[in-house]
Computed example of a mutant assay.
Amino acid sequence: MWRFGRRRADRALATYQRELIDTHYREVENMYTKMRMWRHDYRNHLQTLKALAEQGDLDAIRDYLDKLDDELIVLDSPVKTGNAMADAILSSKMSLAESRGIATRVDAHIPVKLRISELDLCCILGNLFDNAIEANVGVPENDRMIRVYMDMKGTQLYISFTNTAAAGKRRKVHGRFRTTKTGEGHGFGLLHIDEIIEAAGGYVSRNSEDGAFTTEILLPQQ
């Protein structure tokens, strides 16, 4: 019976991981698709500007450049960690959080190659951001907050996620914080994060205070 339950849990975790990877891949691919589309239109933009220049219409050129500038601001990643995949997933999640009225600040730098793959790093960051967004549900909009900090501490990458939470101080069950989400499959995100970190020889700490939750992670460089 125990082995059957373990196999069932393993299958559920494997399914969750595939769905998570697919979701994060689509988010990253969507951002890069938008960038490729803009690059594709680059020649057309130049031709338009040349035509306006030949006509000597400086006001039209300025107006056109202003519109291009606005478009680039929308497409440009608000996060520049030094890792393109991390930039894409963090920017995507920031946009999602802010669309839900959550004040979000990201100060992140990844100056070295890590022992884990970029895909595993994105799974960690995506999961942490999703959990932080979910935890803000029910928090008054003026109080909603997510803060992300990433930088090197010696030879390891330090990752810190802090977010407001509606449920007050959370308690551990068998040494682990349980997810506040409901439904089948929820809770696998935390398990997946822990497995990635353990396999890399890293460290994770979670702390719940009244109204806030913090996750701290150390990941060794390559």
Rank of each mutant, 00 (worst) to 15 (best):
R43H: 13
R178V: 14
T214K: 13
G101H: 10
D107T: 14
M35D: 04
N83I: 04
L114C: 10
F188Y: 15
K181H: 05
R7F: 11
P220D: 09
P140I: 06
S99H: 10
N127L: 05
N83M: 09
G189W: 05
L49Y: 02
Y32S: 10
I110C: 04
E19V: 07
T155C: 01
R105L: 03
A60S: 14
G126E: 09
A199D: 14
G187M: 01
L52A: 11
E184I: 10
I193K: 04
S117P: 11
D143I: 03
L49P: 05
H45C: 02
K93F: 08
A166D: 11
G138F: 02
N44K: 06
G202R: 10
R18Y: 06
V28A: 15
F129P: 11
I21S: 02
K80E: 06
F129K: 05
L128C: 14
Q17D: 07
G175D: 13
G168M: 02
D10I: 01
L90C: 01
F188A: 03
I193V: 15
T182C: 00
M152A: 00
T180P: 00
I159M: 07
D76G: 07
G211W: 11
Y42N: 00
L75M: 08
E209S: 12
A166T: 13
A199P: 09
R62G: 01
E27P: 00
A108R: 09
G183T: 10
I196N: 01
M150Y: 10
C122K: 09
D41C: 09
A51L: 15
E209P: 03
G5S: 01
D66Y: 03
E141K: 07
T179A: 04
M31C: 05
L72T: 02
G183S: 06
F188P: 02
Q17G: 07
Q47R: 15
D69H: 14
Y158G: 04
D130Q: 13
A12Y: 04
I116M: 03
T104G: 04
R8W: 02
P78C: 08
K172R: 15
L121C: 12
I133E: 03
R171V: 07
M152Y: 03
D22N: 15
T180F: 01
G168I: 07
L119K: 09
